[in-house]
């Protein structure tokens, strides 16, 4: 059981910040890792990235975007309630080293897990630039947090309501053309990570992506999270979640993520009819 200590609406209507009591996990967790939660005894196990780690306070933070039944149920929970199962830290931490210039690219909730990574690179003495994107400025999350730990934050919006008008990859390309980076890390929707990898490929910039296939156990036991990287089958939960973006077989990943769409819709629709009034996309 893990107590929810704090909850904030991060982006209306469906993205929430949670701070959760996890004394042991917070001591061990490193940027780039994730946890698996199960909300109740009929619940599914879902992976969520660490958006912040506070070892002294004994808490971890998660950003949850309601996209289906379990995430919607989570975002309906309140401080004082308990998450039944919280398992972690899982996956390998981001390799943090003084890397000259690091460019972090975030999309969707992906900017949140980049926050502890940005902090760590900054502490290691790197120059850290973040490029974040969304459809419009109201959909950006974690901009303030990123500003507090990065040298620069570049914003790209589809509608031009903030920063440059266009995709994150446009902003990234411009940034890299100005001054090359030693490392690019992208976290976000698969289409975005794929586009980032294609942008950096011709430049030969080392590009790390954090893959998010569907998972069950998160410990290397089921193989459901398998991805193809460099022609080999790897398990995202134990070999990743971070991989070399230039070696990932994106088609395989995108196909596998679609696996349960009919079942997920069915379960979510049922939940929504029982919980009318809860807002999600």
């Amino acid at each position: 059981m893990a107590l929810i200590k704090e909850k904030r609406l991060l982006r209306a209507p469906d993205v929430f910040y949670f701070r959760i009591e996890a004394p042991l996990i917070s001591k061990k967790a490193r940027p780039g890792q994730f946890v698996i939660v199960r909300l109740h005894d009929k619940g599914e196990r879902i992976p969520l990235s660490l958006a912040d780690i506070d070892a002294d306070g004994g808490t971890i933070s998660l950003i949850v975007m309601a996209v289906g039944k379990t995430t919607a149920e989570f975002t309906a929970m309140q401080p004082g309630q308990d998450v039944l199962d919280l398992c972690g830290p899982l996956g390998n931490p981001t390799e943090i080293e003084k890397a000259g210039k690091v460019v972090l690219v975030g999309g969707g909730f992906g900017t949140a897990p980049l926050y502890p990574i940005a902090k760590a690179f900054k502490n290691a003495g790197s120059e850290v630039v973040t490029v974040m994107g969304a459809r419009s400025k109201d959909l950006l999350i974690y901009e303030k947090e990123m500003l507090s730990v990065c040298d620069r934050v570049l914003v790209a919006t589809d509608d031009g309501s903030k920063g440059i008008k266009g995709l994150v990859t446009n902003a990234l390309k411009a940034e890299l053309e100005q001054a090359p980076a030693d490392l690019v890390i992208a976290i976000g929707p698969v289409v975005m990570m794929r586009a980032v990898a294609e942008t950096t490929r011709p430049l030969g910039t080392k590009t790390v992506v954090s893959l998010n296939p569907i998972m069950v156990d998160g410990t290397g036991m089921c193989g459901g999270c398998r991805v193809t990287v460099g022609g080999e089958t790897r398990f995202a939960c134990t070999d990743g979640p971070e991989f070399d973006g230039h070696l990932v077989d994106w088609d395989v990943l995108m196909n596998r993520q679609r696996k349960y769409i009919p079942e997920q819709k069915h379960s979510f629709e049922q939940w929504k009819t029982k919980h009318a009034g809860v807002v999600c996309e």
Partner: peptide, 26 residues
């Protein structure tokens, strides 16, 4: 599926009682 995933979804996560239980299986 690996047998482990198939059996885990069904035995541990009770996918055979989906959607009462949240975990699906094909």
């Amino acid at each position: 599926y690996s047998a482990n995933e198939f059996l885990t979804r069904i035995n541990l996560m009770r996918a055979y009682q989906f959607p009462e239980y949240d975990t699906p299986v094909k």
